[in-house]
Simulated scan of single mutants.
Amino acid sequence: MPHHLMNLRHVPDDEADEIRELFASHDVRYYETPPSRWGISMGGFWVHDDDEAARARTLLEEYQQQRRARQRTEYEHELAAGRVGGFWFRLRQKPVRTLAACLAIVVIAALSLLPFVRIG
Rank of each mutant, 00 (worst) to 15 (best):
R37P: 09
T33V: 15
F23E: 08
R97Q: 13
Q64V: 14
Y31H: 09
V47N: 08
S41Q: 15
A109P: 05
G39L: 03
A16P: 04
R37L: 12
V107E: 04
V96Y: 01
A110D: 00
R68H: 14
H26K: 11
S36H: 05
R57P: 01
Y63W: 01
F116V: 06
L99N: 08
A56W: 00
L99Q: 01
R68Y: 11
R9Y: 09
G44H: 07
H3G: 05
F23N: 00
S41M: 13
P115H: 04
R55C: 10
E18H: 07
D49Q: 10
V106M: 04
H10K: 13
A53Q: 02
W46T: 00
P35F: 06
R20I: 14
Q64G: 12
S112D: 04
R92M: 07
I105S: 07
T98N: 01
R37W: 03
L111W: 00
E52W: 03
K94A: 13
V84P: 08
E32C: 02
E74L: 14
G44V: 09
H26C: 06
E32Q: 11
G44Y: 03
L5D: 02
D50C: 11
W38A: 14
R55I: 14
V106F: 08
P12T: 12
D13I: 13
N7G: 08
D17G: 13
V47L: 02
G85Q: 08
T98R: 06
L8T: 05
Q93W: 04
S36T: 15
D17P: 05
A69L: 02
T33P: 07
D27I: 01
L103T: 12
Q66W: 10
G86D: 00
Q66R: 15
A69P: 04
L8A: 00
A101R: 04
H4E: 12
Q71N: 10
R29W: 06
Y75W: 10
W38P: 00
H10M: 12
R92C: 11
L91M: 08
V107Y: 07
I40A: 10
F89M: 00
E15H: 11
D50Y: 03
A100Y: 01
Y63C: 05
E61L: 15
R90F: 12
I119W: 04
R97V: 14
L114P: 06
R20S: 05
I40T: 11
F89C: 03
Y31D: 07
K94T: 14
Q66S: 15
T98D: 03
P115F: 03
E21H: 02
H10Y: 13
T33C: 01
E61P: 08
A80W: 06
D17R: 15
A109R: 00
E62C: 08
H4N: 10
E18R: 15
A54P: 02
S41I: 15
R9T: 13
A104L: 15
